[in-house]
Amino acid sequence: MKPEFENTPLVKNESKKRFEIEVNGHFAFIDYREGRDQIILVHTEANPELAGTGAAAAVVEKTLHFIEENAKKLLPYCPYVFAYIKKHPEWKRIVDEKFERYDQL
């Protein structure tokens, strides 16, 4: 994560069902669904004003930390999150082994 995002707080916006960070009034976020033991990450997006800033990667990393800290298992259906985990395989530790594409990570 780029240093400029380290102190940006992650918000679990339950009304919108998304994890988000806000940067200068613009958002990077991940839509999620949550079960008792799992969090499904569905879609990652950043406002166009944040394109190329690293905000999307920052919201992913902060969300993965949140999932781990809350002892949940991850189902990374979002292609961006899936690619992020492939690039950072240490995060495979929080992916639910029952995830259908687990062996592709």
Results as ranks from 00 to 15, higher is better:
94 I>K: 02
81 V>N: 10
79 P>F: 12
84 Y>K: 04
33 R>S: 13
16 K>N: 08
79 P>R: 13
73 K>M: 10
48 P>Y: 08
19 F>Q: 08
93 R>E: 10
65 H>A: 10
18 R>P: 08
74 L>Y: 03
99 F>G: 07
78 C>Y: 04
10 L>K: 01
70 N>V: 05
94 I>V: 12
10 L>R: 00
62 K>E: 00
41 L>W: 02
77 Y>G: 01
33 R>M: 13
33 R>T: 11
79 P>W: 13
61 E>G: 12
81 V>Y: 07
73 K>H: 09
51 A>E: 07
30 I>C: 03
23 V>A: 06
88 H>D: 00
37 D>Y: 15
90 E>R: 09
97 E>W: 10
63 T>I: 04
41 L>H: 04
4 E>T: 13
34 E>F: 11
72 K>C: 02
62 K>R: 05
48 P>D: 13
60 V>N: 07
98 K>N: 14
11 V>E: 11
54 G>Y: 03
87 K>Q: 11
22 E>G: 09
3 P>E: 11
76 P>Y: 08
94 I>W: 03
102 Y>I: 08
104 Q>Y: 09
1 M>H: 06
1 M>R: 05
80 Y>N: 06
99 F>K: 08
23 V>W: 05
86 K>M: 09
39 I>Q: 02
94 I>R: 03
104 Q>W: 08
11 V>D: 06
95 V>C: 10
51 A>P: 00
81 V>Q: 10
66 F>H: 14
60 V>Q: 08
57 A>V: 01
6 E>I: 11
38 Q>V: 14
58 A>D: 05
83 A>S: 12
74 L>A: 07
18 R>Y: 08
39 I>A: 04
80 Y>H: 12
59 V>Q: 02
75 L>N: 01
48 P>S: 14
46 A>M: 04
19 F>M: 12
38 Q>A: 12
2 K>S: 13
5 F>S: 01
48 P>C: 08
30 I>K: 01
16 K>P: 00
11 V>A: 07
75 L>M: 10
52 G>V: 04
49 E>T: 05
103 D>S: 14
82 F>G: 13
48 P>I: 08
66 F>A: 06
69 E>Y: 03
25 G>T: 13
